[in-house]
Design a protein around this nucleic acid. Structure first.
Length: 875
DNA sequence: CGGAATGAAAC
DNA sequence: GTTTCATTCCG
C-alpha cells in the first residue's frame, strides 16, 4: 500500500496528478466500502481477494496491485458522476439553443444567459427540472449506494496537513480514507463487486482451458467434439454464466437490496434503471477493462478463428498472401505446423474462405437464407418462450443442421446472430468461456484503461477509428449494453451461433480490406447512418437499392449484437453479400432504452429477426423520435445542419450514438478523464442509467430562446450577487433581430412590469427573482390574466422570421401548460404531433413512423416540443 | 486548465 | 455559511 504519500500524492502531485484528483472526485468507494463491509465483508472478502489475485495473475498486467486498490476503487467511482442538479439539467438542455442563438458567445456567456433564463423560468417548469434532478439523483444513489458527493472537505482537513491543496485532495480523500480507515480492506470489499465480476475470472480460467482444449479437439475432430461439447456448453454456460451475471447483479443491487424493493414500486423507470444499472455498475467495474476485455475477446475470437482458419486452410489449402497475423494462432496453438501455412493472415484466410463460400454458394444462398430466416424465427420464438438449455440445444441442432446444409455464408449474410458455422462448434465452447475471460481482463485492466481512455477519448475515435475502427465499435457496444451483449453472447454461444459469428466476421474483414477506403470512412461514422437507414428500411424495407445502405444497418446490428465489435466495420462490408437479408433491421443497438433493451435482448437472444423487428420497431420509433431531436440539436449547435445531408442524416439517424457522441465529445475538455472513463467504463449499468437519464432529460421541456428573451428582457437582469447588471453585454451579444424582439418584448414587459411594478431592485433579493418569475409566468402562461398575454406572446414571436417561433411557443406553452395544467391535453398533444410533423418535414428526412412513436409514447408534448423549438430555431 | 452559472451535499 | 463539483466548451 502506498500509504506513505497517500492521497496526498495525488493532490500534492497535483498537476501531475491532475488526473488523479479528478478520479478521486469520482470515487465514492469509501462509502461503498462501508456498505460492503457491513454487508458481506466476511463472506466475500476472501473470495474476492482470491479472485483478484487470480485476476492479476491472469491479467498478466498485474501491474496494478498498487493501483489495484486505488484505481479499482477509482474506476468504479469514475462512473459515478455526481448527478446534475436542476440547473445543470436545464443548461444541458438549453445550452445548445443559446449557443445557436449566439454563436459567438462562449460558454461562459451562454452560461450566464442560461442562468438568466433559469432565473426567469417558470417555477413550474423549474420544478420539473428539479424533480427530474431529484429523480435522477435517487436513481443514481441507488446505483451507487455509497456515493458521496463530496468526499468531505474534511479529508483535506484530516490528512492534509502536508497537503497543499485541500480542494482537489479532498476527493483524493478516498484513497486516504481507505488508507486511514479500514479503507484498504474495505476498499477491496468495495472493489470486490467489480472484482466479483472478475470472479468470473476463475471461470474464465476454466473457460480458457476449456477453450484451448476445445480448440484442439475441434481441430483434431471438429464434429465429434462439437457434438459432445455442445450439449454441455449450453447448460454449463447458461447456468453458470447467467447465474453469475444475475447473481452479480443481485449482489450489486443487494447492497441496496433492502431499499430497492420499496423504492422500486415508487420508483419510476429511472429508479428501476438505477437498480439495473447498479447491477451493471458492478459490471461496469469490470467494464473499465472492457476494452481490454474486448481485446481479449478479440484475441480469443481470433484464436478461434485462427484455429478454424487453420482447419480451413488445411481443408481448402487456400493460399494467398501472407501476413503477419499468424502470431495469434501461434499463441493459441503454439505448436502447429500449420503456422507455416498460417503465414497468411487469419484474416486473409477467412476472407478467402468467405469468398470461396460465397462464390460457391451464392446460388444456394437465397434459398438458404429464406429457410434460415424461418428457422431463426422459430428458434427465436422458442428461445423466447423458454430459456432452458434444452431448447437451446434443439435450436442449435437445427441450426447446425442448417449450417451443415448451408455453409456459413447464408448465416453471415442473414445477420450477426444467425451466422453459425458448423466448424464453430468448438468455438461455442470457447466462446462462453471467452466471455468470461473478457470480463476478467477488463476488471484487471480497468485502471489503465481509464487513463488510456481518457487520453484517447475523442481523438482516438476520430483519428483512430480509421486505424482501429474496432475501438470505436467496442466502445459503442460496451456503452450501449454490455450486459445485453453479454447475455446475448451467452445465449448465442449456447446456440452455437456465436462461433459462427466470428467466422462471419473474418470474412467481413476481408471484404473490408478489399474496400479499405470506404471501410474506414464508414467505420468512422457508420452508426448514425445505420439507424437512419434502418428506419428507412423499416418503412421501405425493400428499397435497399444501394448495398451501402443495407450494409450500414447490418453493420449496426453487428456491432450491437456483438461484443466482438472489433470487427464491426468488417461487418459492414459483409453485408454486401446479402443485402436483402440485411435489409431486415435486425438489431438495434442495445442502447436503446431500457424498455427497448428488454425487447431487444429478447430478440437478440432469440435471434429472430421478425421478433426483433416488431420489438425494435417500437423502440426505433421512440428512439428515432428522440434521436431526431438530439440530432437536430446537435446539428443546430454545430450549424452543420446545412452541411451535407449525408452526414446530417447520419446524425439524425442514431440518437444513441448521438447522445454518446455528445457526451464524449462534450468531454473533450480537461475533464475528459472522468467523462471518458465514465462513459467508456460505465458501459452497461451506468450507460443505461445515463441513457435513461438522457431520455428523460430530453423529455424535459425545452423552451425556445424567444420565450426566454421575452422573459428575459422584461426582467432586468440584475441578477444575483454580481449585483446590478441591468444591462448586460452578454445579452446584447444576441443577434440583432433579437434586439428588435427585445424591444417589443421590452415594451410588453414593461407593461407587465408595471403590473407588478418591479423596478429592478439593486439588491439581489429573492424578491427580484420572484417578480421575474411572475413576469415570466405572466408572459408565458396565459393562465391568469392571459388574454393580453397571449396576444403579446403571439405578437412577440412573430417579429422576425419567427413565424414558426410563434407556433413553437404556443406549442411549448401548451405543453408546459399541459403539465402544469391539464386543461387541454388534447390540444397539447395535437400540437406536438403537428410540431413533429413539421420537424420531420424540415429535417427532410425520413420516415413517418416518427409520428407513430410519438403517439405511442403518449407524451407527445414533451418530445414534440423540443423538436419544434429546435426546428424553429434553425430557421 | 480556468472559468460562468446554480444547486446539492458534506463539512 | 463555506467548499466541491456536476455540465459545457472557449480562450
Amino acid at each position: 500500500m502506498k500509504g506513505n504519500n497517500r492521497n496526498k500524492d495525488h493532490s500534492a502531485e497535483g498537476e501531475g496528478a491532475g488526473k488523479r484528483p479528478k478520479r478521486k472526485c469520482l470515487q465514492w468507494h469509501p462509502l461503498l466500502a462501508k456498505k460492503l463491509l457491513d454487508f458481506s465483508e466476511e463472506e466475500e472478502e476472501e473470495d474476492e481477494e482470491e479472485d483478484i489475485d487470480k485476476v492479476q495473475l491472469l491479467g498478466a498486467d498485474g501491474l496494478e496491485q498498487d493501483v489495484g486498490e486505488t484505481e479499482d476503487d477509482e474506476s468504479p467511482e469514475q462512473r459515478a458522476r455526481r448527478p446534475m442538479n436542476a440547473f445543470l439539467l436545464f443548461c444541458k438542455r438549453h445550452r445548445s439553443l443559446v449557443r445557436q442563438e449566439h454563436p459567438r458567445l462562449d460558454n461562459r456567456g451562454a452560461t450566464k444567459i442560461l442562468a438568466d433564463w433559469w432565473a426567469v423560468l417558470d417555477p413550474k417548469e423549474k420544478q420539473k427540472y428539479t424533480d427530474m434532478a431529484k429523480e435522477y439523483k435517487d436513481a443514481f444513489m441507488k446505483a451507487n449506494p455509497g456515493y458521496k458527493w463530496c468526499p468531505t472537505t474534511n479529508k483535506p482537513v484530516k490528512s492534509p496537513t502536508p497537503t497543499v491543496n485541500p480542494r482537489k485532495k479532498l476527493w483524493a480523500f478516498p484513497s486516504d480514507s481507505s488508507r486511514d480507515l479500514p479503507s484498504p480492506k474495505k476498499a477491496k470489499t468495495e472493489e470486490m463487486p467489480q472484482l466479483n465480476f472478475g470472479m468470473a475470472d476463475p471461470t474464465q480460467m476454466g473457460g480458457l482451458s476449456m477453450l484451448l482444449l476445445a480448440g484442439e479437439h475441434a481441430l483434431s475432430t471438429p464434429e465429434v467434439p462439437s457434438g459432445t461439447c455442445r450439449p454441455d456448453v449450453p447448460e454449463s454456460p447458461d447456468s453458470r454464466q447467467k447465474s453469475p451475471l444475475f447473481q452479480f447483479a443481485e449482489i450489486s443491487s443487494s447492497t441496496s437490496h433492502s431499499d430497492v424493493p420499496s423504492k422500486q414500486c415508487q420508483a419510476s423507470a429511472l429508479l428501476q434503471f438505477a437498480e439495473i444499472s447498479s447491477n451493471t455498475s458492478q459490471l461496469g467495474g469490470a467494464e473499465p477493462g472492457k476494452r481490454y476485455g474486448k481485446s481479449a475477446l478479440f484475441q480469443l475470437a481470433e484464436m478461434c478463428l485462427a484455429s478454424e482458419g487453420v482447419k480451413i486452410e488445411e481443408s481448402k489449402q487456400i493460399k494467398t498472401k501472407e501476413s503477419d497475423g499468424g502470431r495469434i494462432k501461434e499463441l493459441e496453438k503454439g505448436k502447429e505446423e500449420r503456422e507455416i501455412k498460417v503465414e497468411k493472415t487469419d484474416e486473409g484466410n477467412l476472407q478467402k474462405e468467405a469468398e470461396f463460400e460465397k462464390s460457391a454458394k451464392e446460388n444456394v444462398r437465397d434459398s438458404k437464407d429464406l429457410r434460415n430466416f424461418e428457422e431463426l424465427q422459430v428458434d427465436n420464438i422458442m428461445a423466447i418462450k423458454m430459456e432452458d438449455p434444452k431448447e437451446i440445444k434443439k435450436e442449435e441442432l437445427e441450426e447446425d443442421q442448417k449450417c451443415s446444409l448451408f455453409p456459413d455464408f447464408s448465416y453471415s449474410a442473414s445477420s450477426k446472430i444467425i451466422i453459425s458455422d458448423v466448424p464453430s462448434r468448438k468455438d461455442h465452447m470457447c466462446h462462453p468461456h471467452g466471455i468470461m475471460i473478457i470480463e476478467d481482463p477488463t476488471a484487471l485492466n480497468k485502471p489503465e484503461k481509464l487513463k488510456k481512455k481518457k487520453k484517447k477519448s475523442k481523438m482516438d475515435r476520430h483519428g483512430n477509428d480509421k486505424s482501429t475502427p474496432k475501438k470505436t465499435c467496442k466502445k459503442r457496444q460496451s456503452s450501449e449494453s454490455d450486459i445485453e451483449s453479454v447475455i446475448y453472447t451467452i445465449e448465442a454461444v449456447a446456440k452455437g451461433d456465436w462461433g459462427i459469428e466470428k467466422l462471419g466476421e473474418a470474412p467481413r474483414r476481408k471484404v473490408r480490406t478489399s474496400s479499405s477506403g470506404k471501410g474506414s470512412l464508414l467505420d468512422a461514422k457508420p452508426p448514425k447512418k445505420k439507424v437512419k437507414s434502418r428506419e428507412k428500411k423499416m418503412s421501405k424495407e425493400k428499397l435497399s437499392d444501394t448495398t451501402k445502405e443495407s450494409k450500414l444497418p447490418d453493420f449496426i446490428s453487428l456491432s450491437a449484437s456483438k461484443s466482438i465489435s472489433g470487427e464491426v466495420p468488417e461487418g459492414i462490408k459483409a453485408e454486401p453479400l446479402t443485402p436483402m437479408e440485411d435489409a431486415l433491421p435486425p438489431s438495434l443497438s442495445g442502447q436503446a432504452k431500457p424498455e427497448d433493451s428488454d425487447c431487444h435482448r429478447k430478440t437478440e437472444t432469440c435471434g429472430s429477426r421478425k421478433s426483433e423487428r416488431s420489438c425494435k420497431g417500437a423502440l426505433y420509433k421512440t428512439l428515432v423520435s428522440e434521436g431526431m431531436l438530439t440530432s437536430l440539436r446537435a446539428n443546430v449547435d454545430r450549424g452543420k445542419r446545412s452541411s451535407g445531408k449525408g452526414n446530417s442524416s447520419d446524425h439524425e439517424g442514431c440518437w444513441n450514438e448521438e447522445s454518446w457522441t455528445f457526451n464524449q465529445s462534450g468531454t473533450s475538455g480537461s475533464k475528459k478523464f472522468k467523462k471518458t472513463k465514465t462513459k467508456e467504463d460505465s458501459l452497461l449499468g451506468s450507460t443505461k442509467l445515463d441513457e435513461e437519464f438522457e431520455k428523460k432529460s430530453n423529455s424535459l421541456p425545452q423552451y425556445s430562446p424567444v420565450t426566454f428573451d421575452r422573459k428575459y428582457v422584461p426582467v432586468p437582469r440584475k441578477k444575483k450577487k454580481t449585483g446590478n447588471m441591468s444591462s448586460e453585454p452578454a445579452k446584447t451579444s444576441k443577434g440583432p433581430f433579437q434586439s428588435q424582439k427585445k424591444n417589443l418584448f421590452h415594451k410588453i414587459v414593461s407593461k407587465y412590469k408595471h403590473k407588478k411594478e418591479k423596478p429592478n431592485v439593486p439588491e439581489k433579493g429573492s424578491g427580484d427573482k420572484w417578480s421575474n418569475r411572475q413576469l415570466f409566468l405572466d408572459a408565458i402562461h396565459p393562465t391568469e390574466d392571459d388574454k393580453p398575454k397571449e396576444q403579446l406572446q403571439r405578437s412577440l414571436p412573430k417579429t422576425a422570421e419567427t413565424d414558426c417561433n410563434d407556433e413553437c411557443l404556443h406549442h411549448s406553452e401548451a405543453a408546459g401548460t399541459r403539465s402544469s395544467t391539464p386543461d387541454m391535453p388534447a390540444v397539447s398533444a395535437f400540437f406536438s404531433l403537428a410540431a413533429l410533423a413539421e420537424v420531420a418535414a424540415m429535417e427532410n428526412v425520413h420516415r413517418g413512423q416518427r409520428t407513430t412513436p410519438l403517439t405511442h409514447d403518449g407524451q407527445p408534448k414533451e418530445m414534440p416540443q423540443a423538436p419544434v423549438l429546435i426546428s424553429c430555431a434553425d430557421q
